[in-house]
Amino acid sequence: MGKKITLTIDDRQVTAFEGEKLLWVALENDIYIPHLCAIKEEERPSASCRLCFVEVEGFSHPVTACTQEVYAGMIVKTRSPRVDRLVKSAFELLLSDHRLECAKCPKNRSCELQKIAKERKLKLRLTRLKPLEKEYAIDESMGSFVFDPSRCVLCGRCVYVDHQEVEVGAIGFTHRGLQRKVTTFGGGLLADSPCTGCGRCVEVCPVGALFFTDKAG
């Protein structure tokens, strides 16, 4: 880690170590920036959810806070008309591919999407876009937890813990483009995969795509 430096986020002076990523510096200082895909331990952030845009003085375009390293004297604004527009657009795009039935969702009230909507005063429904309505099969084969891909936002947290933390290799990203999804080998049931049922992937899921059943207590 580099030397200690001072930067300004939303007119507040904060200290950090040079080379740290802006997103985590902000969050540690209780400055909220929306995010879904960021994993602190990952050396090269995936930067795929496109929700953590901020303005940095001297930069011509908004940048993603998860990839931006902090430096001494940096001046950051977490909100601006451009940032708000991008976040709103990315958020609505994600909602268009997410089954929006909060009342029926086990993650109701603890869902990251709801948190983002609340913090940024965004609507939890589609205003300009039509829902994409893809067909998904719900996987209940594990018993202790359920995988419902229709709620998945492709943040990749589950794949990260599966591969890097518990080193099981049961699930991964497969297919390309709009078909990109988290599946097992051959798209089969989790029960037929190397999954050990440790439940780490369920714990890190920010939405209701992976959730424990009552059976698990």
């Binding site: 591969h163 290799g169 049961a170 991964g172 497969t174 390309r176 599946t183 080998f185 190397p194």
Partner: peptide, 12 residues
Amino acid sequence: IPTVDVYGIATF
């Protein structure tokens, strides 16, 4: 490597 990774490449 995990089988799912090979499947991921093959479907990509």
